[in-house]
Design a protein around this nucleic acid. Sequence first.
DNA 1: CCAACCATGTAAGCTGTTACATGATTGA
DNA 2: TCAATCATGTAACAGCTTACATGGTTGG
Lengths: 174, 174
Amino acid sequence: MEISILGYALLGLTAGAAQTGYALRKIFEDTPMGNFSSSPGSIYPALKKLIKNDLLEQRNVNGKSLHHITDAGKIALKSFLRTPVTKAEIQSNIDHTLLRFAFLQGEEDISITLNFLNTFENAVQSHIDDLQAFMKSESASALTLHGRLAMENGIRSFQAHHAWSIYAQQEFSS
Amino acid sequence: MEISILGYALLGLTAGAAQTGYALRKIFEDTPMGNFSSSPGSIYPALKKLIKNDLLEQRNVNGKSLHHITDAGKIALKSFLRTPVTKAEIQSNIDHTLLRFAFLQGEEDISITLNFLNTFENAVQSHIDDLQAFMKSESASALTLHGRLAMENGIRSFQAHHAWSIYAQQEFSS
DNA sequence: CCAACCATGTAAGCTGTTACATGATTGA
DNA sequence: TCAATCATGTAACAGCTTACATGGTTGG
């Protein structure tokens, strides 16, 4: 019963208030949230699966089916959000990491958020170090100008994430 | 016969020199190229499919099977690389865009690269405008501090891509 | 009244992942 | 000789996408 990233996004969105499938689709369609497809073919089967696993509960109210998060759903979401940020995660799916950050809004304690941002900062810095080490290695001598520039794009991108993490920590500390 | 992004990556890597399946796996494993899985379960079936579509050709040389790109493969790759950068692409898959950029190394004419970078710059700027417009809209007033910061992360990230595209254009002009 | 939007779903198909499986070669 | 690495593959499964399908409601 592995929960996909879309599954967690749905849990996070229903955690605040119960939602219809259509409302959830609209969020993906109208806001820059994640990069999830808003197609019914992705949302409805995903909701169905969450219900099957007792993470969501469907209650019909005048023709519309509202999805409520269950206690088990809350526990699963919390565990997802509190997982420390690793280098592997930011490397392969930093979007997922940012999604996790956004849903940390529900956590009472600010120290949870600050801790998240701290592990984020370290993971990003560590990845930047890796990329820069690669650029200095012999492997990099084989790079063409295009290849070198593509790598530099990656480094600059992660430097922006790093700067953001410092800024975000300040926002929560003040 | 849609070619997946992994398929194009394999075409791009074999375009320079014929490669064994194992060598291709090693590239994904040892270098920060794309974020492709280096597992045999992804590479070998992908190569098989390219061969079936006559985009690659397998030639056995003392037990190893070297994959050569065919003329049809070269044409497919070229058309992929020359597709203009759109807002939709950088929004959903900027990694793919960067992959396309990296493989433009094979193009003789620098103006192809400069044109690519120019459409990249415009697409990125346009997306930044969208994000900033969203932040100023009423929709954004519903954002929590976490949500606002996640959005700001996105904006900063694309600003880094924008700055890079200016820098890259300078590198090719000088 | 009719177009647009609300609202929910299914079916086929593709891609990629993990895990399993095998065997050759090479360097310590 | 034995562990690591080279080298190639298959099978089961999960997940998402596109396309298809249906019907209600509402505002101009």
